[in-house]
Design a protein around this nucleic acid. Sequence first.
DNA 1: ATGATTACCTGACAAATATCATATTCTAAA
DNA 2: TTTAGAATATGATATTTGTCAGGTAATCAT
Lengths: 225, 225
Amino acid sequence: MSKCDSCIIKEFNSLKSLTRDELMRVSACKTGKVYRKGQVIFEEGETLNGVYCVRDGVCKLTKLSENGKDQVVKLVVKGGLLGKRSLVSDQKTNLSAVALNDMEMCFIPKAEIMKDLSKNPKFTMDVLKEMAEDLKEADESLVNMAQKSVKARTAEILLYIHDHFGTDTEGFLSIVLSREDYASIVGTATESAIRILSQFKKDGLISTSGKRIKIEDSNGLKWIE
Amino acid sequence: MSKCDSCIIKEFNSLKSLTRDELMRVSACKTGKVYRKGQVIFEEGETLNGVYCVRDGVCKLTKLSENGKDQVVKLVVKGGLLGKRSLVSDQKTNLSAVALNDMEMCFIPKAEIMKDLSKNPKFTMDVLKEMAEDLKEADESLVNMAQKSVKARTAEILLYIHDHFGTDTEGFLSIVLSREDYASIVGTATESAIRILSQFKKDGLISTSGKRIKIEDSNGLKWIE
DNA sequence: ATGATTACCTGACAAATATCATATTCTAAA
DNA sequence: TTTAGAATATGATATTTGTCAGGTAATCAT
């Protein structure tokens, strides 16, 4: 397995603020893990004893609602760190993580990271900043969820995925989700998500090929209300 | 104005992790501010150059939705710190703060707090923990917003206010909100909020006296879906 | 290749919620 | 105290969204 200090992934998260020495220590005790599409990485309520650094693939963070449905709270791709909140607050995790395609991750034990958190202020500050960003995003999601129609939320997640995670060489969204996942992100019934995506297709806003979606008229999507 | 190190309020927030010396410094540069009911403390997009510590009163943190309606993201009472996220991330604030009744606050300039953040790891860790808690709460709100009915959300906010902020001597919720505020919290039209609260009253779940609300059957409210 | 399973799609209807209109009650300022 | 303006209340109706029911198409393990 590659060493952390030479790992390009770390540039995308707060691990970049660790010193070379600290990275060597982290590297020495990390373990690599591979998850298959659909596999559960951890489940709501579990005690995590470390953080996961995503090297490749995509996963969804979900939370079970009282009505028994999963709600997707966040999508995490290469460079993301899973388990930060749980680590910091020293609580069981409030979210589940499920791989959306085959994933490659590094697992860093809690003790090692906590050592750095207590000794490297720059690193702590960086984690703080990442958390602040998550919080801001969560506020935005909350407002969208509360104030926008399902159709508008669906249009928005398509644009979000496009802008944040990009497209493949053919122009299709590089993150491929099931209709059920879309429903679970925008917080609606699967049938509704299907209907809305079909409508978007009819209206020429998107096109599809299998499960893949291509945005044809991003401006049109922006004006959905 | 009282000194921070003898201020009981600090026990409720991360300032408690500051040393006596640090508190003296903070105390020396803080300024007291008073806000009237309805007054804007700060507005979305402003650059905050410090944090606000709530000594008395209640305020709402809101965010303007694209449809022009305000969404209440959080209620903050005595002991709360406003402006943390903005301070940490060094960005303009993403939320507005409006006093719900007359308020007394202390304003602590950014420079002073940042000094402590960079030098007192226990304090930084505490801020980190508070932020982690906010994030967890935001995730929960998101799921509720996405998956529960307006009626259930309304029941929930009543119980939340009861459990978190308590009641006055007569048993009425100690935080008094307009129907419009309730609507803005649960993310619905004002008329819908009014209707639902009226229904709750008819069903004997709550009773009212002017704008004040008393929970009569908290168990009944819990089972609303 | 084939059957079984899962994902996707669509229609019909029911339920929840928004919107508009209008009336009533409360409240704060003159 | 009076009174204009705001907040609360309620009805009628339109719109959005969910649910159930029945399909077809894609995918997977044998």
